[in-house]
Design a protein around this nucleic acid. Sequence first.
RNA 1: GAGAUUGUAGCUCAGCUGGUUAGAGCGCUGGUUUGUGGCACCAGAGGUCGGGGGUUCGAACCCCCUCAUUCUCCCCA
Length: 448
Amino acid sequence: MQKPSLPEGTRDFGPEQARKRAWIFDTIRSVFVKFGFQPLETPAMENLSTLTGKYGDEGDQLLFKILNNGDFLKDADPELLAAKNSAKLLPQISKRGLRYDLTVPFARFVVMNRQTLTFPFKRYQIQPVWRADRPQKGRYREFFQCDADVIGSDSLLYEAELTQIYDEAFAKLGIPVVILINNRKILFGIAEAAGIADRFMDMTVAIDKLHKISPDGVRQELARKDIPADSIEKVMKILANPSLEALRPLFANSETGLKGIAELERVFHLLGKTPLKNEIRFDITLARGLTYYTGCIFEVANKRIGMGSIGGGGRYADLTGVFGMPGLSGVGISFGADRIYDVLDRLNLFPENLNESVPVLFVAFDEATHEYAFECVSRVRVAGLAAELYPEPGKLKKQFEYAAKRNVPYVVIVGETEMASGMLTVKNQISGEQRNMTVEELIGFLSK
RNA sequence: GAGAUUGUAGCUCAGCUGGUUAGAGCGCUGGUUUGUGGCACCAGAGGUCGGGGGUUCGAACCCCCUCAUUCUCCCCA
């Protein structure tokens, strides 16, 4: 007999976990829908050509590839095979891969359906993605992403609305958060002001680590990238600056930097016209590693416990360009569902009633009462309520233990007396109190 | 890709410098209580000590290989 096991970095979600996760997804989805986003689902697998080259060299390595069906070595180049040249052999033996995120499939979908879509196109998508990463704390090889993106508009209204979505969703989930906002153009302004515009990405990647490593660590990181010492000090000096206002004079010679300031001011202006439940903060050190962001960028941090970011996103100028449809600006956000789960779990913030499976369980003593109970259960279900009947009549002890383990709040006892009178015995499992009532009364009782 | 960690019952773990029939708690099954669960008591089932090889009179424990886990770095959610 073989021991059952799970592939590295994957997990099962048992009933309780699955219910909690469904609650998270439903909560987030309801906010997406409220802001007019439409659902989209794409296949788990994409053509490898769609995926490769979109996430950098590292990303390509982390793609799960799917072996071709049939005799997949038949058409493989014998020389490559003999040389064990995996990299060059790959396209000959694998045509498909599992999706790595939801953004690239979304871009592919938009380009393929450009004739029928109405722009701006707002979609949300809640599906699993796969990465052949080394699993560790809070990181899995299969995990869910909850994305909302708008494509086909460069209006800053959407930056404001997506911030509102974060605000409302986390308020509904009961997690107090800080929503951090920055703008890639401001980061570019820093690079220009420090005279290292050509090293923009190196600088960004280093700044992104500021939260993890000390300012000195960032200095070392920058120095390692051969950035001149005086430029490094200029960068660090600007980073120490917390407000948009004070930034403006420093960006006198950076048109892009000034534009970034103006964009953020516009977003904050719009947000000022609506009540928000969480703190929204400009954070000049927020960088985000992904290269395709070009404007505003977001990140959500929970206030209670340290645990990476639980959401992030930003504006990208040209996501569909690689698929031959340039000039479409988009902006999107993502919720880290798995980490949100961990935060809710650690802080005990899940709603109480989530682990109740059914509101009522029927129990009976013998064949005759069991059949009568079956009729009663059916009538409760016809009324639209969930109900369950224990499969065998007999010992109440066993049936009550089952009810307790399933967290059923009410148990209906059906015996000869009940069957004769039509008055069921209904026991409240929490208080222990018992009452007699007809099926109709039970339905009314459970409905409120 | 690099480094570390752990692997003993369904679960969480104990097992002293290698020594005879491998333990506990929880869970499970049955009973005390065949019209009432959570508590208590009693009894019981359940393990080729991740797998393979080696050292030894003797290995859960020491050595080698292998598989798997968890964590850190890189990168990211």
